[in-house]
Each structure stands twice: as C-alpha cells, then as structure tokens.
Design a protein around this nucleic acid. Sequence first.
DNA 1: AGTTACCTATCTTCTGATAGATAGTTATTC
DNA 2: GAATAACTATCTATCAGAAGATAGGTAACT
Lengths: 197, 197
Amino acid sequence: MVVNAYLLIDNKFMENQTYTAKAAEILDAAERHMRAGGYDAVSFRDLADEVGIKSSSVHYHFPQKPDLGEAVVRRYTDTVLGALGAPDDAGEDAYARIERLCAVYRTALSQDGLICLCCVLGAETRDLPDQVASAVNQFFERVLAWTGTALKNATGQGGTPAQILASLQGGMILAMATKQPALFDETVTGILERLAG
Amino acid sequence: MVVNAYLLIDNKFMENQTYTAKAAEILDAAERHMRAGGYDAVSFRDLADEVGIKSSSVHYHFPQKPDLGEAVVRRYTDTVLGALGAPDDAGEDAYARIERLCAVYRTALSQDGLICLCCVLGAETRDLPDQVASAVNQFFERVLAWTGTALKNATGQGGTPAQILASLQGGMILAMATKQPALFDETVTGILERLAG
DNA sequence: AGTTACCTATCTTCTGATAGATAGTTATTC
DNA sequence: GAATAACTATCTATCAGAAGATAGGTAACT
C-alpha cells in the first residue's frame, strides 16, 4: 500500500518527524529567538554560532529561511499538542482538561521566560512567508479543535474555545509587556472561574 | 511657573505633541509597517520611499530607530486614549464604557485590517530597545488604568481590567492568525456577556 | 545669522543565499 | 573482500542587497 505523502503532513504520522541532533539544536535556537523577537529575530549566522557550525551548514539542514520557520512552528505545534494529551479522556472532566491547557501555557512562560511561539508569530502573520503563516494557522486550528473537544459536556458557562484561547494568548502578551507575570495568572483565574460556574 | 518636563510625558499635556506634516506621514507609514510585521518590519528606506523623501531625511526627523519607534508608540497611545474618551463620565455605566473599548479595537481591526500596535510590539518586548519597550509598557498601564476606572461601580462579574484587555489582545491575534475576523467578535461577545451578568 | 527640511554620497555591518571543496560514512557492485 | 559510487554533514569563500547611520552640502524661510 502506498501512503499518501500529503496525508502524512496533516495527520499523526507527522508528529514523529525526527531530526538529527544538530538540526534539533538549530531548531531549539531558532525557536528561542523567534519567541523572544519574532521571525526577523532569527539569523542564520547567529544560529550557526550558537550551535557551533557555519551559516552555510544551517542552509544544508534548512535550505531557505521559510523552511526553517515552518519546521520550528510544526515542531512546536506537535510539542504543545503532545503536552496537552488527550482531550477526550473519559477519566477527566472539562475543568481538569482546561486546567491542563492553562498549565501548559503557564509552564512555557515561567520556565523559559518566553511566550507562546504562535502568539508572537500570529501577531506578525501579515508579513510572514505564506509557508510559515500557514503553519501558524494550523497551530491555532489544532489547539482550537483540542479545546472544543475538551469542553464537550462541560457544565458551567466556560466560554468558547476561541474565548479561552484568546485570554491565554492575550494574558501572555500583557504579562510580558508589563513585566508582570501575575497578570497572566489573573487571566487564568478568570478562565477557570467561569468554567467552574 | 516652571513646568516639570518629566511630568509632561506622563500627563495630558503630552497628548498634544505636534509633528510636521512630513513627520506625521513618516509616523503613519511606520505604524502601518509595525502593526503588520513588528519593529523589524520598518526600514528607513521603505519609509522614505513611501513618503517621497530620502532615507537620510527620515533620520532628520527621527535620529535613531528607537526614537522613531518610541514616537510611533506614544502617538498611538494618545490616539487610542483619545478615542476612548473619559472613563468616568457620569452619564454612562460600565457596560457602555467597555462596549466603547471593544469598539475602538474592533474599528482598528476592520478599518485598517491591522491589529493593535502594542499587541504586536508587546509580543516581541524582549527584543525591543528599552526606549520602545518602555513606551509599550506605558500603553498597557494607561489602558489598564482607563479600564479600571471604567469598571468602577460595575454591577455584574465582568472580570478585571487585565482579563478584559487580555481577551481583546488575544482575540485580535486569533482573528489575524486564522484569518477569521469572527473570532475577534466572539471574544468581544464573551466580554460583554460577562459584564451584563 | 540661524534654523528648517531636505539632498547627495558614502560607510560599515548584517542579511539570506550559493558554489564548490572535503572528509567520513554507508551502500552497491564486481 | 575490495573497489567504487553515493550520501551526509560540514567547510571556505563569496555575492548582492539591505540595513542603520553619518558627513557635509543646498535652498528657503525667519
């Protein structure tokens, strides 16, 4: 049986895409820079220096910058969805799932001191190469879908997936821009209170 | 009486800072680019071309790039606060005021097809020159303060200023990144529903 | 005379990108 | 099993273009 290569991109098989150690190092550095300063904050030379190779070797792993950008976003998407786990585990209620969603975001913020990659890139979508913008779009579609499933059979008036996700993304920006991490926690509190009803 | 120049920056006098026609044109172009793609999306040459002068002449109006960035953010802040009007007009209730806040954001999004400047810059705060990051910080402090005042004597459980603002900022990103403006409207609906109680 | 608002010309540094060489590994063929 | 081919991951060297920035000139207005 021949597997449709296109399908491979949009279903679970893709989640296990592997990279060599060096390529992964490059992606790590690129993600860090992008989350701190956006797409333009990444330069092939800086990445090369950080991982100890030459800039031309970075092009070997990721021919063009949009290829690199797309790879960073796709890997990030898979990491986040992996951390979120199943949105329809019967042993959990909606509250526990959304609490987990908030915790995933919270960890990213406090652990790395950086906000969500797709929050940063989403803000500059208009100027991103199509390839990258499309990957960012898919991140949101997938997380929105996860949240929609997670909310099934929710009791309280917890709000829609878009409302919840908007609060999380906006809370991060507020926390980062005002240097007050507590503002993020405040938005999380609001989300969970509404869900508890 | 000598007016304290520092005070001038943080109170209403500052709102009337004037620019020559050409400087204002430069700020317009710079704001457009920044709202579409962030701080790095602005180049002196592009701005110069757009307003019909040479790049060195842009430096005449705004010596360094951080000066330009700061000016764009400060002018934007004053414009937004001007559009918001008084947060403590006795003839209005909290709902009407927050409705206005949402409308201001909504207009920016639908009229220009661009999201809030400080949403974009806030996302990349970590990599911004201090001068610019500080102006972005002040934008949020002022809008948070406006919202706090607007909510005084609110009846329903409308949420805190940070919760409301986070929803608005996040809703914009979601709308932009998914190319679904309706997602912004959905977050606005949520904000107003909670406020109505 | 001084100030304003531009200009020309130029500099350095950084950017993404490419061509072509090299050493080491892996696979294929005789 | 040895010879050869192909692939992987890096290098050196280089390019054209764009970036922010500066020095110094000019014409007009105050």
